[in-house]
Structures are given as structure tokens and as C-alpha cells.
Design a binder for these strands. Structure first.
Lengths: 374, 374
DNA sequence: CGATTTTGTTCGTCCCCGGAACAAACAAAC
DNA sequence: GTTTGTTTGTTCCGGGGACGAACAAAATCG
């Protein structure tokens, strides 16, 4: 992207963007790259890039099977990360957060030594969070309730003065997914529109509209895992009955496949591929449940794509076509605009990347605090 | 609202708003009202009001049981209307639209004679529409498919040059509802957030977020009527099975109450109040279905209110509490922020008002075309 | 090498808003 | 009735940001 092309894209004059770009360069948010050779007449433009390694978003992930810290720069490239695998079901929130806090301190110290500016820290939690206050309302798989997570981070002198934030893991993963997709297709962030459904221990979800997350009124949107499929169905941890999670959650699938609760997804997939009837039945039922819940959701939201993330991405070859069939039969608008069902492309620990990107995106959206005061 | 209060509300200085208000007054969009007596020290401000009778939004409604035209000014007050009741199920689209076109011409002629500026015309249709092109994709209850509705309006020399638009009836009714609610509570339009569910022949829906309609990618959002409740349930007109509409649509309720299909809602209500077991059972089942579908929707959307419109408003005393119970049991976030279930307050022919308000709202949101060029 | 094309910058101008000061219109106090 | 304090709306000046025109720079094409 050059100044001239930027001017056309945002509908400003070249002098106007030149002025703005100069300020961004002065603030070290943007750098000029080496001129690219074009075989077109006219003076070649100077490519502009988000400055590598200058401003850093730090994502922190607290999940059932790992904790981790990841640092991404404005370009979204990895600077450092620390990930510790483990089993954190029903963990003690305080101990777990203290551990992740020290990991974060290490990363931030390293970034300081690299002369990078940490723009903020975002904590990803698998549950309902209160983004302003930093409180985790309810994280069923961790067994947390009404816990002030950011207060723990704020005990660290190194982290206290940074901008801290909490967010839902599925929402953050969807953010990473949206970025990866606009990169992959070369298209604009603005035409990313999809329902993100992520298979974890529970089922997370998020709504991406125009490249942005539709967070709802309190930031709790996307809880597709508790769509009702059958009010007479099995009891869910949420208190209700027959939720999608009870048909397509990891525990539910393994139970229906008559496999132990700690079986890996790849083993489940291998069983199904080998023709094990219980495994295939479990996956088929999960796909049907996913298809039904997604159909209702899409009728409500009017989106034209569903992205399956988490462990659904591993199972995509099996689940995807079944889900797509059901959706395109049941979604009213699919006759005019077919619904695409696709696998997530955002790699491992998507919510961790998403948390870091949350910070980066805020800098990009509101660079004013980082600019010279004029 | 005075200039000074406006300045505080939008965070500008008084001189800035004074300048803008002057332009709006010059364009006849705003008028100064008589000074109100206040028992507070200081110079009293000059109340500013949307100019009455100057700019008019014209709403046109094409429904199963009536056609109509309604003209509202910037303040939302009625200027004129023409409504014709009738049975238009499986109507001939061309004939029906020609009839409504001549009604519209009458209204527009009258507005011209009143020296009012018609800011545009919006046509409300019970179905999926293509707002840009003016095409009605699918209106099941009217029996329309792929019909270019605006083309018919454009045949009229009087209407041709106006800004014409088509919209979904439930979405437009939700717009009217949002306006009525912010008026009723005296609050800002911006804190209107609710899921609107309207009982008609089918079931319409819409999502209001921050006072604005969340239209989705193509303007087809809100189709809660085709949420799945039971994939093994009865066949729906939409092609799928077990949709909400088959449990809580008007036809479905009457069928389950063992009443003829043309029975009025008030008669159904009377039966239920009189203790007729079939009628109460039908309404109970409808309420449960509504509650389940709404629960899934709210889990997905993170809203804290459901507004029941259409004939559900008449049945609210019966349906409301049942729906509220189910929702507050099943919606995850309801433990922190209880979900309110309320009856619509926007009176008869809400979609007709909504269509007119759609035009008015566009003028308010983008007044530039109506201002003097400087 | 000159003509053409595209890019980025410089300069003058205009629009919009902020800040300060001022006049106007009220209530309350004396 | 007059004074004082308060709030409103206006006038005037200044500055930031964007536009338009012109110009310099760096490439390709003939």
C-alpha cells in the first residue's frame, strides 16, 4: 500500500494522506519499505508497512489445557511467546493467574529490552467476562465465578501501568480468524462476515460483521453453545437442558462415541475414519446438531458463512459437508446467497493471537494516544 | 432540547452547535419553539424542535390484511394516511401494487398542496426484500416471488423522481417500536436494545442494537420464525421442518386450538380466558416455543429485552410471563442482567409507521442533501 | 533523449471547530 | 426597583485539517 493508493482507498487527497502518514512514521507506527519494481509507467510509489517490532500487543491465554503469552507487532507477526501445556480444569484462579502473570512479566521484560513499546495486554478467558471491570463472571470449564482477574495482573509493578483488558476466548479467536482470512484472500478486512463456531471443551462462538466483532450489549454475544436443540434433552452445565453443547461439545461427542473423556480428537477422528460405527454416529449427530443450531443462528443474523474452529477444524472433513447440507436446506436466504461452511485457518492458540490482536487493533483504530501531541 | 444542552450532549462548543442549528433552521428542518418558562436562574434556552409538516416521510404498506399509506413529518407526527382493509392472501402483485400506487399518489398530491417536501417513499413488504434494487425476493404470505415492486411505483410520474425503497415489515415495525419506546421512556434512542418478535400470519423479527436496526449482510436478519425447534416437527412453508412458525404462528396456534383459520385473535383470547382447554393449551405451547427460540437468539445476540409485537401484543398477558420464565431460565447472561419481556407499544400498522420513519430517519442521519449548498 | 505517466510534496485557501469575550434574559436577594 | 449571579446565545479570532493547483521526482515508452 502506497500513499497514492491509500488516498484513493479512503477518498482523501494525496497531500492529506501524506501529512497523516508522516505523523504515523514520526510516531514509529508506520515504516517506508524498499521501493518495489513495477513495469508500469510513472514514478513508483513507496510501499508503506506497519512498523515491525515497534508497538506490541500482548495476548495472554488462560485455558483448560494451557496457559500462554504471545506478543505480536502491528503487522501481526510473532515477536515472542511462552506457552505452558497442562490440565487446568477446576483450577485455582488465583494460583493460575499468578503463574500466567509471571510468564507475562518475562515477555514484557524481553520486549522492553528489545526497545519495543507494549501497547497493552489482553487476557483471554473461556467464559463470560466484564471487559471494562476486568472481572470473569463465569468460566464453567475453569470453575471460576465472579473473579477479578485483572486485579491479579495489576499486582505486578511491571504490568500495572499498561492498558489491561479481558475478553472471551471465542470472540478473540474469531478476531484472529478474521485477520487471517483477510490476509489469505488478499481482500479487505471489511468484507469479513461469518459466524464463528469453536469446538473446545464447551462450544464458543462469535459473530463477525464487516470485519468487526458484534459483541452485543455486554460483550457476551455468540453463545451458540447454549442454543436449544431439545428441551427434553440432557442436562447442561449452564442449568438448562438440551443445549447444543450436549450434542456437539467435546465431552458429549466422546461420551456418545463410547470413548474415555480424555481421548484426543485425532484418535476420535482415526476411529471414525477406520469405520468405527459409534465414532461415526457420534460425529454425525454432532454435525446435525451444529447444522441445526447454525441454521437458526444464520436465519437470525443474515450471514453467508460459518467458520468451524477449535477442534472442529480438525474434524472439518467429516463435519463440514454435513453441516453445510443442513444449513443450505434450512436457511431461508441460502436460496439466493448460498452459505459457505469453512474450516478455521488461524492455527493453534487462535484465542491467544486474538488477544494480542485485540490490543494491536485498538492502536490501529485509535492511534491518537501514541502520536506526538502536535 | 436547546442549543446549550445539545452542545453538552454531542460534546461541541455552543458556537459550533449554534452554527449548525442555524443551517438546519435555514433549511426548514428545525424550528425554534416558544421559550419555556423554567424556575431556574439564568437566561432560558430556546427549545428546538424538528420542523412540523415541512419534510415528510411516506410509508407504504402491502400486507395480508390491508394496504396503506402513511405520511409522518420529522417529529414523527401523523400528517395523513389512507388505509384499506381487505384479504390479500395470494394476491396478484401487479394489481395490488397498482392499487397502492394510486393511494400513494393521492397522499403525495395532498402533501404537495400542503407545501411539504416529500423526502422519500418506503414500501413495507412481509418478506425478503432487496433494498437497493427494490425487488421482493420472497413474500410467502402474499405469494410473491422475485417481483420488482419499485418498478411499479416508478411508473407513476409523480413518484418516479422520489427516493424509493423497499423493506421488510418486521424490521420496519421494530423501527417504529424503537422510536415509540425512546419517546415513552424519555430516554435516548441510543439505549434501545431488544429482540423484536412480531406475530403476523407468519412470524417476523428484527434486532435493535443501540437504537439502530442490525440488518445483517443483505438486510435479511431477524428471521426468528424459522428457528428450528424440532427437526422432526411439522413441515413449514419455508421448506424446512419444525420451525418456530409451526408452533407460534397464527395459523399454527388456531389449528392447535381447533379453531377455524380465520378466527380473530380476540376471539381466541376470549376462549382462553373462558378456560377453554384447547385454546389455553395452544397458547401455552406457543409461548414455550417462543421462549425457546428467543432464548437461543438471546444467547447468541446478548440483548436484555424481548418485545412482542403484532398479535402477540394482544396476547401479551397470557404469553408474556411464560416466555419470560423460559428465557430467564435458559439465557446464560440473565443471571447477571435479567431479560425483560415486554409488549409492543407502537400501535396499529407499526410497519407502516416504520416505513415512514425509515425515510425520516435517513433525512435526520444525512441532512446534507437537504441543506443549502453553502 | 523527449514525451508521458504516476507519485509525492509545497503552497495558498477554505471550512469547521475551539476559546474568549460579550450581550441578553432570566431568578434570587437585598 | 436595583443589584447580583447564572445560563444562554452570539461575535470574533485563531488553528487544525483537508482540498486544489502547481511543481518536482522517478519511472516507462517511443
Amino acid at each position: 500500500m502506497t500513499r497514492a493508493r491509500l488516498a484513493k482507498a479512503v477518498d482523501l487527497t494525496r497531500p492529506a494522506v501524506s501529512d497523516l502518514v508522516d505523523r504515523l512514521i514520526a510516531a514509529r507506527l508506520v515504516v517506508e519499505a524498499a521501493p518495489e519494481s513495477v513495469d508500469r509507467a510513472g514514478r513508483p510509489g513507496v510501499p508503506l508497512l506497519p512498523a515491525p517490532g515497534s508497538f506490541i500487543g500482548v495476548g495472554v491465554d488462560v485455558a483448560v489445557d494451557h496457559i500462554g503469552v504471545r506478543a505480536l507487532d502491528l503487522a501481526g507477526t510473532l515477536v515472542t511467546e511462552r506457552i505452558v501445556e497442562g490440565d487446568f480444569r477446576s483450577s485455582e484462579p488465583l494460583a493460575m493467574l499468578e503463574r500466567v502473570t509471571s510468564l507475562t512479566e518475562l515477555v514484557v521484560a524481553q520486549l522492553d529490552s528489545l526497545n519495543a513499546t507494549v501497547a497493552g495486554v489482553c487476557l483471554s478467558v473461556p467464559g463470560l467476562t466484564d471487559p471494562q471491570g476486568g472481572i470473569v463472571r463465569y468460566a464453567p470449564n475453569l470453575g471460576w465465578r465472579e473473579f477479578d482477574a485483572l486485579a491479579v495482573l495489576r499486582r505486578s509493578a511491571r504490568l500495572r501501568d499498561l492498558t489491561l483488558e479481558v475478553g472471551n476466548d471465542a470472540n478473540l479467536a474469531a478476531r484472529a480468524e478474521a485477520r487471517h482470512r483477510s490476509r489469505a484472500t488478499g481482500g479487505s478486512r471489511l468484507d469479513q462476515n461469518f459466524l464463528f463456531v469453536s469446538g473446545e471443551v464447551g462450544i464458543g462462538g462469535a459473530i463477525v460483521l464487516g470485519g468487526d466483532l458484534a459483541t452485543g450489549l455486554h460483550g457476551w454475544s455468540g453463545e451458540i453453545g447454549h442454543s436449544v436443540l431439545d428441551p427434553a434433552g440432557p442436562q447442561c452445565r449452564c442449568g438448562a437442558t438440551g443445549c447444543l453443547e450436549q450434542y456437539a461439545g467435546k465431552d458429549a461427542i466422546l461420551r456418545r462415541a463410547h470413548l474415555p473423556a480424555n481421548t484426543s480428537v485425532s484418535r476420535l477422528l482415526a476411529r471414525a475414519r477406520a469405520g468405527n460405527s459409534q465414532a461415526t454416529a457420534a460425529l454425525t449427530e454432532a454435525a446435525e446438531a451444529l447444522g441445526l443450531a447454525s441454521s437458526s443462528s444464520l436465519n437470525l443474523l443474515d450471514l453467508d458463512a460459518v467458520v468451524l474452529g477449535g477442534f472442529y477444524a480438525q474434524l472439518f472433513d467429516v463435519l463440514g459437508p454435513l453441516v453445510a447440507d443442513i444449513i443450505n436446506q434450512r436457511v431461508l436466504a441460502a436460496r439466493w446467497v448460498p452459505v459457505r461452511v469453512e474450516s478455521a485457518v488461524s492455527g493453534d492458540y487462535a484465542s491467544l493471537s486474538g488477544a494480542a490482536l485485540r490490543v494491536v487493533d485498538r492502536v490501529v483504530a485509535h492511534p491518537a494516544p501514541w502520536l506526538a501531541p502536535r
